[in-house]
Design a protein around this nucleic acid. Structure first.
Lengths: 225, 225
DNA sequence: CCTGAATCTAGACAGTGGCAAGATACGGCC
DNA sequence: GGCCGTATCTTGCCACTGTCTAGATTCAGG
């Protein structure tokens, strides 16, 4: 363990990890800077130096969460995944990093206008809407490319955006309900549940594609009917 | 106005309303029993008598929320609404009662095993899965009730349950993201957005071109309610 | 009017977040 | 080497919060 001397070495990371553990276990409201400091063996005011504030610590958590999410979404698509793969990666992120996820989507807990947060947020959104655009364009059989935006729709939202929002809502709702314990009677594999649910909403064919090359560690395959 | 004397008459409700206002405005973590007491003009220990605990107050909020939700879902279906109508009512509930909604799905804030909470929760779930069953089975109606007690096999969920979960995830995700501010650039009417999103997910093809109107057409007047 | 129960007050205590001032250690400079 | 600036951490303090205990006030019903 790090020496108990003054310069701890990487107190910031240790405080973050302790905070994540507490949040995952007892929720963000049970977080106490003093308890974190005690765990790390430093004085009660040490966290303030690294994060300034309790909101500052949670801002750091949220920013890190969005970056992790963006990285995992990018990894999923880089591995040849489509929109479904991105959605499953989203669910996997939520269950693998429940503390990050919980904080990220509770903007009253932190400073949502922080530039680091907004940048990482935009990065994650780009992947979602990008894969959604590919799906939308493929399904309608028109055009190609069109990475993120083509505001030519009279209704207001272009297809990529609408498909992206729909898919995002689906996986986000599933992840949220799962973490809240509202789906605990539906097995123990949220990613598999997401695959099953997505096949209902979007129809297995439309979003089928190549699905298995996503790095689903323990997935039992079986695209459910 | 209630007198400032001892027996306030309606302190419990007033505290609840004050709590809802604070939560809707600044989030559940900013809630302070002492502040509520001050607002109501009573001493700082008065809330404890009615709710015992801070968690007790939030338990009351969650129970009331589930009952309100169940009532609105039941009203939507009683008015001849289908699964879509129930989903839209769900979104409307979340935006009309953001404080209730936020607390309900954060079980670490309250005592989720409270009998009043569980009963209201089951009541709301019954409506969702009931309408989902009607949609899934089409003509083949199955028995009513048995919404939460079914020890479903994780591998093989019945259609009603799967459709219900899919729809629930969709509207819950939309409501959650909306309240978190993540969809603020998509207009100002979450219910209309939900209709559009539902038409993508459940209304056939993955990207339905310009099919903006599903079944209820342009008439914004909701059949429910 | 009197009594018991419901309701609310008053005081105290341990924790908590945040601030200010000081102590300590690291890294570069001469 | 010695020195100093800066980042890092500590100590002390204050206001606020939740919760507990004991006591005061009011209401309902005989």
């Amino acid at each position: 363990m790090a020496k108990a001397a003054y310069h701890h070495g990487n107190l910031r990371r240790e405080l973050l990890d302790a905070a994540l553990a507490v949040i995952a276990e007892r929720g963000p409201s049970a977080l106490s800077l003093r308890e974190l400091a005690g765990r790390a063996g430093v004085s009660h005011a040490a966290p303030a130096h690294h994060f300034g504030d309790k909101a500052g610590l949670l801002t750091a958590v949220a920013a890190e969460g969005y970056e992790l999410l963006a990285a995992e979404l990018e990894a999923a698509t880089r591995a040849g995944g489509d929109f479904l793969a991105a959605g499953l990666a989203y669910v996997r992120f939520a269950t693998d990093h429940p503390a990050h996820f919980q904080v990220m989507f509770q903007p009253t807990l932190y400073r949502a206008d922080d530039p680091a947060v907004r940048a990482a947020e935009a990065r994650a959104a780009a992947v979602l809407y990008g894969t959604a655009g590919a799906l939308a364009a493929g399904a309608t059989g028109e055009g190609s490319g069109a990475a993120a935006g083509d505001p030519g729709d009279p209704g207001g939202l272009d297809d990529a955006r609408r498909v992206g929002v729909a898919g995002w809502c689906l996986v986000h709702g599933l992840a949220t309900l799962w973490l809240a314990g509202n789906l605990s009677d539906l097995g123990d594999d949220p990613v598999e549940l997401a695959r099953s649910v997505a096949s209902i909403a979007f129809g297995g064919g439309a979003a089928g594609g190549a699905r298995d090359d996503v790095r689903n560690g323990g997935g039992a395959g079986a695209p459910a009917r």
